[in-house]
Amino acid sequence: MGLAKRVIPCLDVDAGRVVKGINFVDIVDAGDPVEAARRYGDAGADELTFLDITASVDNRNTIYEVVEQVASEVFIPLTVGGGIREVADIRKLLNAGADKVSINTAAVHNPALVREASEHVGSQCIVVAIDAKGVHVDGEKPRWEIFTHGGRKTTGLDAIEWAVKMTKLGAGELLVTSMDRDGTKSGFNLPLTRAIADAVDVPVIASGGVGTLDHLCEGVLQGGADAVLAASIFHFGEYTVAEAKQAMRAAGIEVRL
């Protein structure tokens, strides 16, 4: 027995409210981040990830209030991503009660931020989000490239090389999302997850494409992930976190029950 593989529900937060629907039975307010977080915590979630998708500048500060409220009532690790540009943003989130922050676009534009941030707050707080998409050019070996802006902008960066570089700069964990799979419910991109997990020393979270509980198991067993992140299968009540863990245990994966 030893370290458990983690199951991490991800919630999108817009202007302080959970969006994309949370379909718990008898939930009073599906948009209340505290209630959603508490439900997931009670169901056995190992961590929570909040993705701040607030577009309006006026509402940017709402995420700090959300983090503060959630961290006061739900006692499991909390990661917050979205809109992080500088170390000051990271400090504010950590001071509000986040345990880790997830950086994507800012790391691409300014890789030194990862080093600076990990030196200031410790690698264990810095998750770098790797949003990758397969690129197939005739006559070339297929590879994965880093994308930003929700998968709309390519960067030309090779995903595996980028992942290694991020850990050298101080990332304590990588959140690997396949932009090809995100929202498809067809399962993680296992070759991508595996290639990154094998290339780095830090834990890897698999994300993007979960539609069934088998997909979660595959992420660990074939993808080599240390944690699996999913949104819609939990939000819409298709499966509970407890069911996810039972399925993983049945597949021989060590989980916290």
Binding site: G2, L3, A4, V202, D226
Partner: peptide, 9 residues
């Protein structure tokens, strides 16, 4: 992996 991150006994 290192860091040791997650739930252990």
């Amino acid at each position: 992996k290192i860091p040791h991150m997650g739930w252990n006994e």
